[in-house]
Simulated scan of single mutants.
Amino acid sequence: MSKIVLGIDISKKDFHVTLILENQTTKSKVFKNNPEGFLVLKNWLSKQGATQVHGCMEATSTYGEALAEFLVENGHKVSVVNPSRIKGFAKSELLRTKTDKVDAAVIARFCLAIAPEIWTPLPVEVKELQALLRRLESLTDMYQQEHNRLETATPTVAALIESHLEQLKQLIVEVKQLIHDHFECHPDLKAKRDLLTSIPGIGEQTAAVLLTEMGCIEQYRNARQLAAHAGLTPQERSSGSSVQAKSHLSRIGNARLRKALYMPAVAAMRHNPLLKLFAQRLLDRGKVKMQVLGAVMRKLLHFAFAILKSQKPFDPDYLAHAS
């Protein structure tokens, strides 16, 4: 791994960077967050003798995706890390100042000290599917918000809302059709979706979300790593004899994965033989319903990992041993 690191603090319009060279010299600069700004960054790095850097940025919204892809395409390494890790690192340094320039420097020092895992861009077809699913999510949220406004709307405003609801409904149908067509155009993606839908409780839309939000399955050494990525691993808080809090889900991870698994877990507790027995055992041991639901969500993700790794559809006997 290169000893030259680049801390990147991303915002919508620009991004601040701090470069730490091999001789520990640091340089800072700000660039526009657009293709022209990326080229200026490339030339600046070249002038500093940084032919290959390990760039690091926080996983915040989608503002940094284009830059991350640009860096990878130009032979650099990139890490996209959970903001909580950077925040914790900054606290360990007892920092009291927070500006974009300071944040970029913190990210650079974090990258140098921790050497976080390397980020891999999504394949083009997966990225397009992700964009379609997030558009569908936005339209569905807008539809629900407008529907809620009907309760207090005057007759005139209600008519306008009804018209907008019809438009949204049509757009939702169109995006769902685009998602269906996208799978038809990419047989490998469709085959993975069909593997996931062989799990009782996992429908086509949930499978699609899993495929886009999990990323490349090869990046995980085991199912627990995938569960940690989704924030579905237990978090324990105890210390000596005075602090003995109940364990709970960490929720430090991909919120879309957790949201996508919630209703399938509810359905699986009723219709998936393995998970129905699993849930009952936990209830018999005194676990509360929400704890059991979280455990079922995690188990579903373990199943998804095993199935995609083995390329075999759901088999209760196989998964009873594999998971």
Rank of each mutant, 00 (worst) to 15 (best):
S2V: 04
K3Y: 09
I4K: 00
D9R: 00
F15A: 03
F15T: 01
T18A: 12
L21I: 00
E22T: 07
S28T: 08
S28Y: 02
N33Q: 03
N33G: 01
K42E: 15
G49T: 06
C56M: 01
S61T: 12
N74W: 10
S79K: 13
S79M: 10
N82Q: 13
S92R: 06
L95T: 10
R96F: 10
T97G: 12
K98N: 13
V106K: 08
F110D: 01
L112G: 12
P123Q: 05
Q130Y: 04
R134N: 01
R135P: 05
L136P: 03
L139K: 02
D141V: 04
M142L: 13
Q144C: 00
Q145G: 13
L150H: 10
E151R: 14
E162A: 14
L165S: 07
I172C: 04
D181K: 12
C185Y: 13
D188N: 15
L196E: 05
Q205I: 14
T206F: 03
A207N: 05
T212W: 00
E218N: 12
R221I: 05
L226M: 14
A230E: 07
R237W: 03
V243K: 11
G253E: 04
R258M: 02
K259D: 01
K259G: 06
M269H: 08
K276L: 02
A279H: 01
R285I: 00
G294D: 00
A295S: 10
R298E: 02
K309H: 11
P316R: 13
Y318H: 13
Y318T: 10
A320L: 06
A322L: 11
